[in-house]
């Protein structure tokens, strides 16, 4: 139905305030590697006026997006390779439990601090750590260049494997449009051809206009050669965070909603993670029985 070309990739990591860490006598050696260590650290850094670790609490596509990598780390998925739901499994249950534990232990807030403005929250000390994406680097650069912050990979559960997620916009041509061929050619010329102007456009977009990982090797190489990934944070995103990235899945609304309800009910309404995983898994399976669209990745 569509022709699409990605123009950027935006992986997620954990941001932290260097000032808060220094005040707590922490250093890079204290960066948590496991979920338990992460929650323990968040409890140390949390105060009455400061969230220890922010997981996205708002109901919607963005919350699902930030939650998926925690599920993948435990080997679970919304839809398995056999076309059936792989949601009612240990990996999904423990990821649901992680978000609930954050709230129950009092380290993760029920609403976003600073109205969701991560740079401001880290700058003003309203959050110690916050799971979010590479796009914040450009925001810091533009608005709060003096704020000291660091990033680290998403920690993993015991026995799990590192994974993160990357979203981002794409140029899309509608196959049912008036002239789909011309629209598709435009997309290719804009962000997909080997013409130097096209390569430069993507590199500019990802390193000058924004702070993203280029989805094209040629544009990534050009951006790197021009110093777009030379700052410690951008270099870390490119070399440490980005490997292990999986693209954001495009689930149909029914699957998205089943997972969203499971996250919300577990995280904020206190329901049992196993029960919610079972309900969502059954809902996804019921939907997949009559699903006739493209393969869900």
């Amino acid at each position: 139905m569509f022709y699409a070309l990605p123009m950027e990739q935006e992986p997620l990591a954990i941001y932290y305030s260097e000032k808060v860490w220094e005040d707590a006598h922490l250093s890079e050696g204290d960066i948590p590697k496991t979920w338990d260590a992460m929650l323990e650290l968040a409890a140390k850094l949390e105060t009455k006026d400061r969230a220890g670790l922010v997981f996205e609490p708002g109901q919607g596509y963005f919350q699902n997006f930030t939650w998926y990598p925690w599920m993948w780390q435990g080997g679970a998925d919304a839809v398995g390779g056999d076309g059936k739901s792989a949601f009612d499994t240990k990996g999904a249950i423990q990821a649901l439990q992680l978000f609930q534990d954050g709230v129950v232990k009092g380290v993760s807030p029920r609403t976003n601090p600073a109205a969701g403005d991560l740079p401001a929250a880290l700058d003003k000390g309203q959050a110690a750590m916050w799971q979010s994406g590479i796009w914040n680097v450009a925001d810091f650069r533009l608005r709060l260049p003096k704020t000291r912050y660091g990033i680290f990979r998403l920690p993993t559960p015991s026995g799990g494997r590192y994974a993160t997620i990357a979203g981002g916009w794409a140029f899309v041509a509608n196959k049912n449009g008036r002239n789909p061929e011309a629209a598709a050619k435009f997309c290719v010329e804009a962000v997909g051809s080997m013409d130097p102007a096209s390569v430069k456009r993507v590199a500019d977009w990802c390193t000058v206009a924004k702070s993203d990982i280029s989805p094209r090797k040629s544009a990534l190489d050009l951006g790197t050669a021009r110093g777009g990934y030379s700052t410690p944070i951008m270099k870390q995103f490119k070399d440490d965070i980005y490997p292990g990235t999986r693209g954001e899945p495009r689930y149909p609304p029914v699957i998205y909603k089943a997972i969203s309800d499971a996250i919300q009910n577990t995280m904020l309404a206190g329901h049992k993670a196993a029960d919610e995983a079972e309900i969502a898994g059954a809902s996804i399976d019921a939907y997949l029985k009559s699903y006739e669209g493209a393969k869900i990745l």
Partner: peptide, 8 residues
Amino acid sequence: TKGGPANS
């Protein structure tokens, strides 16, 4: 609230 938390 955008309909949340938990559809409430």
